[in-house]
Design a protein around this nucleic acid. Structure first.
Lengths: 140, 140
DNA sequence: CTTGAGCCTGTATCAGCTACAGACACTAGG
DNA sequence: CCTAGTGTCTGTAGCTGATACAGGCTCAAG
């Protein structure tokens, strides 16, 4: 017979991992560095998560997928946790990040251009002369 | 009066750093991990580089600027050092790297798209509602 | 009761540097 | 000759963002 009051099924670390796709050890890591809160513990010292932790971890993972650093994630979470975040503040963080993403793209496009044009000059033959080596060696 | 035989002015680590723009400590690091050779030492155990080391370090730095990992640099250098590198071998390494560069660009462009379109929806106002937070929070 | 799984902790590892402490070495000025 | 300041040497710690592993509990199934 079930108890008549709502029993809260606890979420273990492995459950949280499975539910979010986040690596088991990474969850503990996030707790250590303070982006995930310390969850309550069972009598046997097992971490007992709830739905709020699932949401929190998803938020972190989504932020990371968008390339925010953990420091930036911390800032975002601080705003959200403060309960007084404003669209303007969050937007400022996002724009700063967007700028760095665009800078990385520009860097990589430059690299892509150099590599592809150099590789295109290769004969691919069994000879020692190679435009790629030349490009890396030239005094320029 | 100058000596009549050619005196080889030794290049110290700080000179090499200045000549290449490579950080002083990084030079020693490259030596430790085996991409830079151990140079001869003076009687007082100071590293004594020559022009060949300058070329070598420039090669490494140029490779790094093009985003090759140190492992890839090691492979490139092994080919060059072997004296028997072929254009085909080098081209293969470069193409592998080019592929990963293109993958990174694709990732970042996706991120850029999500961020820029989300940020564009922000009012930037002093209100808690924020499309960026929504995007990071949504269950999707 | 035994066996396997799951959880706990702290610590090691990876890339690619960068920096610092503490011990020598060297140069210039007084 | 002495001293101050810089340069070099070494080993080692720190950084980001994880990931992995050892050694010890705990727990559920058979």
């Amino acid at each position: 017979m079930k108890t008549h009051h709502k029993t809260v099924k606890i979420i273990r670390r492995s459950d949280l991992s499975r539910m979010t796709g986040c690596n088991l050890e990474t969850i503990r890591y996030y707790e250590n560095i303070g982006v995930m809160p310390e969850p309550p513990r069972t009598s046997k010292n097992y971490r007992a998560y709830d739905e709020s932790h699932v949401g929190r971890l998803r938020f972190i993972m989504r932020s990371r997928e968008l390339g925010f650093t953990l420091e930036e994630v911390r800032d975002l979470l601080a705003l959200v946790d403060g309960g007084a975040q404003t669209c303007g503040e969050v937007q400022a963080l996002a724009i700063t990040h967007l700028t760095s993403v665009r800078a990385k793209i520009a860097d990589l496009r430059r690299i892509e251009h150099v590599l592809s044009s150099t590789v295109a000059q290769c004969t691919g033959d069994d000879v020692p002369e190679c435009p790629v080596i030349d490009a890396l060696t030239e005094v320029a």
